[in-house]
Structures are given as structure tokens and as C-alpha cells.
Nucleic acid binder design. Structure first.
Length: 178
DNA sequence: CGGGTTTGACCCGCGC
DNA sequence: GCGCGGGTCAAACCCG
């Protein structure tokens, strides 16, 4: 768990992407970068979230800023190893276990009635699952820009359905989708 | 026709 | 080995 400096240093090149609902509280949690481990499927504990208040457009700024920089005003060396074999998904299985890809993961918890929050990127849904201990499904999205590795999953907080938890993974290799 | 969504099947890791 | 849970695939479907 890192601590983030939320001020400054986002390059904001996202056009007006405003969330369509009034967002009061947003929470951010679980930052991971650079794994020697392929996947860490650990869930986010609520205590891991970092909460702050923000105005609506600040939030979208931060989301997009995060997604493009690989982090908030962080000096974490977030590097994407796009090296060697990165073509296609079949390679993922092939080299599971010894390839080290930089993993960046961040979760936003946002109070919202709708779950399709516009964060300025174009997403293609590729899966949906029911999660255990929750009546709510979890949706899986992939960034639909060329070979962009970013995924996100969206689900509703299981014990406070007013909130939507959006988890982003990896860093965009392009700028805004618009 | 081109793109996204739906949806059940499939895969993989892990614990028993 | 088996079942479970999370994650992904992909064929069918939908919609402009």
C-alpha cells in the first residue's frame, strides 16, 4: 500500500469527460506495480481504500490522469514491459510464470447510481460473473484501442450498493480515446 | 457490414 | 482428482 500525493502532475489531456452523476466520495485503493508474480488475484479490502472528497470533474481528471500516467503524482517507476512476446493473448498462457509484466492496479469506489461511468476511454465488455457473497455481478471490460493492455472491472459494492467499485489494471499505451 | 454485448463454456490455480 | 472461484473466450446476437 502506497501513499499518494494527489496534487499536481497529472497531465490532463482528457477532454471533458464528466461523470454523469454527482459523485461525492471516491475511494482509491490497492496500487500494485511491477510484479514478479503473474497475477495477484487478491481482493481489495475496504480498509485498503483511501478515501477523499472531490468534485466531479476533479475525479474524472484524476481517473484519466491516472490511467495515462500510470499513477498519480507518483514517482513509482511504472514501466510497461511490452517486450518480446506481447502479441496476442495466446502468449499470455505460454509464458505464464516467468514473464514479469508490470502490473498496475487501482480501484476507485464511487457513489453512483449508474455503473457505466464515463472515464474518457472506450471499453469493450468481455465478461460478466457473479461474485460470491454478493448479489451483484462483476463486469469485465477491455480497452478497445488497438493493442492497449488495459482492463477494468466494475462491480457494485456488496454491502453498500450505492457505491460502484471500478478496478483498472495496467497502463494505456495511447492517449485519450476520443 | 462493423462494432459492441450476451452468455454459457472453458481454463487455471488452489485447497481439500 | 475434484470442485470451486475468479477470469476469459467466442459464437451468437443485437444495433447503428
Amino acid at each position: 500500500m502506497e501513499s499518494w500525493n494527489l496534487s499536481g502532475n497529472h497531465q490532463m489531456m482528457i477532454p471533458n469527460t464528466s461523470f454523469t452523476t454527482t459523485t461525492t466520495t471516491t475511494t482509491i485503493g490497492s496500487f500494485e506495480s511491477s510484479g514478479s508474480d503473474p497475477y495477484d488475484p487478491s481482493e481489495f479490502e475496504v480498509s485498503d481504500f483511501f478515501t477523499f472528497n472531490t468534485a466531479t470533474d476533479d475525479l474524472s481528471t484524476m481517473v484519466s490522469g491516472y490511467l495515462q500516467n500510470g499513477g498519480f503524482a507518483t514517482n513509482e517507476p511504472v514501466h510497461i514491459t511490452s517486450s518480446g512476446h506481447n502479441q496476442g493473448e495466446s502468449s499470455r498462457r505460454a509464458n505464464r510464470g516467468n514473464e514479469r509484466e508490470a502490473k498496475v492496479r487501482i480501484a476507485f469506489k464511487t457513489e453512483s447510481e449508474i455503473e457505466s461511468l464515463d472515464d474518457g476511454f472506450k471499453w469493450r465488455k468481455y465478461g460478466k460473473k457473479m461474485v460470491k457473497n454478493s448479489p451483484n455481478p462483476r463486469n469485465y471490460y477491455r480497452c478497445s484501442i488497438n493493442g492497449c493492455p488495459v482492463k477494468k472491472r466494475v462491480e457494485r459494492d456488496r454491502d453498500d450498493p450505492r457505491y460502484v467499485i471500478t478496478t483498472y489494471e495496467a497502463v494505456h499505451n495511447h492517449q485519450s480515446s476520443i
